[in-house]
Computed example of a mutant assay.
Amino acid sequence: MDTSAAGAEAGADAGSDAGSDGGSALVVGAGVGGLATAIGLRRAGWTVTVLERRAAPERYGTAFGIHPTAQSALDRLGLGAALRERAVPYRDARIRRPDGRVLAALPLERIERKAGRPELLVSRPHLIDALPAELDRLGGTDIAYGCPYDPGAPGGADLLVGADGINSAVRAARFGAASAPRELAEAAWIGIAGFETGVYGETWGRGRFFGMTPVEPGRTNWYATVPGATTARELRAAFADWHDPIPRVLADTDPQTWIRYPMRHLHPALPSFTRTAGHGPVALVGDAAHAMTLNLGQGACTALLDAEALARAVAAHGPGGLPAALRAYDGERRRSAQRVALGSRTLHRFMTARRPALRDALVGLLPS
């Protein structure tokens, strides 16, 4: 059964409490996790300040895949309608070899059957715009751009939330340096082709892969990894003999719009996403807590689930019950998010195997 209407109604009910008495929170980071946390806390009646070290919102990027569980979290935050306004369903995607032979289907049909709704794809700029728009509608939140977090500055907020990404200053200051970014050998490339390929899913080769998804009418989201490739020419050469439309996607899109970034993850896993001792209660969400590789496409989803769970726990326990709220949040989210992160790293090693014959044989046993 599709629960989107019920979830949206619950989100609207939560929003009606935005003017009630609550605590105060300082959220560091104005990405998906930070803004979604701010929305959830504001709906619980808290006063929220968001600090963002960048001078303006970062509207770069291509597409977010939003799993049905994350869609439900957005419904509870009152953002389900904004998501569905521009999202497209993700269906009929395959895993292929470089010659185009289909090895298996991605499990999208099973996800839709189980959840009663499909996985959705939405352009990253649309979601990044929808989150502050909702904060503006709710009121009571200041977003300070160009303001990096200073761990030595005087406190004052009841709760500190670190949503400042894989290089989190909050994590470094409050959780130590034991868990830190670890870089993989490959870099990731992402871009948008100005046409619909109609061929979606992922193609796995020797040590590299290429993926394509829908994102908006007339456009296709793509992503790839190649060890050692640092230029557009090298990336195009790495996929020149792969099946259509991969060479065409790379040939027909402007390299100036491509984004290249190192593949990284947080390692080792944190023993807790929260702290209450020392300088007061603090919680980590999103990449600050469990940054992962892109292979499962769950980075934004886990950040949204973190944000909604933290806000829900805080609303249930109130400003005076923050220790219990943070225990509840950590208990709900840490193991689940870390399993996803581990699964993504494991899949990355599998996808980029240097001897793909056994891998392809195993994948070929899956339904196609």
Rank of each mutant, 00 (worst) to 15 (best):
M1G: 08
S4N: 01
A6R: 05
G7K: 00
A14S: 11
A14M: 01
G15Y: 08
S16D: 07
S16P: 03
G19F: 09
D21Y: 03
G22Y: 06
G22R: 06
G23C: 12
A25Q: 10
L35R: 08
A36Q: 03
R42L: 13
A44Y: 03
G45T: 04
A56E: 15
P57D: 14
R59F: 15
Y60G: 15
G65H: 06
Q71W: 01
D75F: 13
D75W: 15
R94S: 02
R97A: 12
P98E: 07
R101I: 04
L108G: 04
E109M: 02
I111N: 04
E112W: 02
R113N: 05
R117W: 00
L120F: 02
R124M: 11
H126S: 13
E134G: 00
L135Q: 07
G139S: 08
G152S: 11
D158M: 01
D158T: 04
D164T: 09
G165C: 10
I166R: 07
I166G: 05
I166H: 08
N167S: 07
A169S: 14
A169I: 08
A169R: 15
V170H: 10
F175S: 03
A178W: 00
P181F: 12
R182F: 11
E186V: 03
E186L: 09
I192L: 15
F195C: 09
G198H: 10
G198P: 02
Y200P: 01
G201Q: 02
G201F: 05
E202W: 06
E202K: 12
T203R: 09
R206H: 13
G207W: 12
R208D: 01
F210R: 01
V215P: 04
P217V: 09
G218V: 05
Y223I: 09
V226A: 03
R233P: 08
R233M: 11
A240D: 14
A240G: 09
D241Y: 00
D244W: 15
L250N: 09
A251K: 03
D252Q: 15
W258E: 06
P262R: 14
A269Y: 13
L270M: 11
P271K: 06
R275L: 13
T276N: 12
L284Y: 09
G286S: 14
G286E: 08
G286K: 06
G286D: 10
D287Y: 07
D287M: 07
A288V: 06
H290T: 01
L294Q: 06
G297S: 01
A303Q: 03
L305W: 02
D306A: 07
A307C: 08
L310V: 04
R312Y: 04
A313F: 01
G318V: 02
P319H: 12
G321C: 04
L322W: 11
A328T: 15
A328R: 15
D330Y: 14
G331E: 13
E332T: 08
R335C: 04
V340S: 00
R345C: 01
T346M: 12
T346P: 00
R349W: 06
F350Y: 14
A353T: 07
R354C: 01
R359E: 03
A361E: 09
A361S: 08
V363Q: 09
G364N: 07
